[in-house]
């Protein structure tokens, strides 16, 4: 079925296009907008973006696959990103990753069977001074301990 924005999101379109001197520049913002609604970038989303921008679906698909934050496959309702780069690794990021895997019963890159959570590792999230850290959906969680991680993950599974 063809992809369509909700009426509220539809209103944002004109404002986005007005920021740029051409349509193609709205590619990243439109992919974000559509993914926010749909959860991931499906073929239908790609077609929708391409039509809005007057560019080929190949262009949009090329863009969607270049960036790590566009999901070209269905994913969980929530995303957990554990930073594993050096400053976080110096504060036990590897233990945090393993702990999340055990607690969620999945490996990095997988989604829990109930579709609630996808676990990812992330590269340096500009939060090195408060390592170790993870991002859950839009929120940063810093100065983590294993106990804090438990509380955060439990809350996710329930929501």
């Amino acid at each position: 079925m063809a992809f369509q924005l909700t009426p509220e999101r539809e209103q944002e379109l004109a404002e986005i296009f007005a920021r740029y001197p051409n349509k193609m520049a709205a590619c990243l913002p439109l992919l974000h907008l559509a993914q926010e609604q749909h959860g991931w970038v499906s073929d239908e989303v790609v077609t929708w973006v391409a039509e809005k921008l007057d560019v080929s679906t190949a262009h949009v698909f090329g863009v969607a696959t270049f960036y790590s934050l566009y999901h070209t496959h269905p994913v969980g309702k929530h995303h957990v990103w554990v930073c594993r780069t050096l400053s976080c690794a110096l504060h036990g990021a590897d233990d945090i990753v393993k702990h999340c895997e055990k607690r969620l019963g999945i490996h990095v890159g997988e989604t829990t069977a109930d579709g609630a959570v996808t676990l990812h590792t992330a590269e340096c999230l500009a939060s090195c001074g408060t390592a170790p850290m993870m991002q859950i959906d839009r929120e940063y969680h810093e100065n983590l301990t294993l106990a804090k991680v438990d509380v955060l993950l439990d809350r996710l599974r329930k929501s």
Binding site: C27, L28, P29, H32, H59, F66, Y67, S68, L69
Partner: peptide, 21 residues
């Protein structure tokens, strides 16, 4: 907004990204 790519900090890559590429 970027979309998750360290390379986009390099200025010409950033410009391509801004242009929707």
């Amino acid at each position: 907004s970027g979309a998750g790519a360290y390379i986009c900090g390099e200025e010409t890559s950033l410009l391509n990204s801004l242009e929707g590429r």
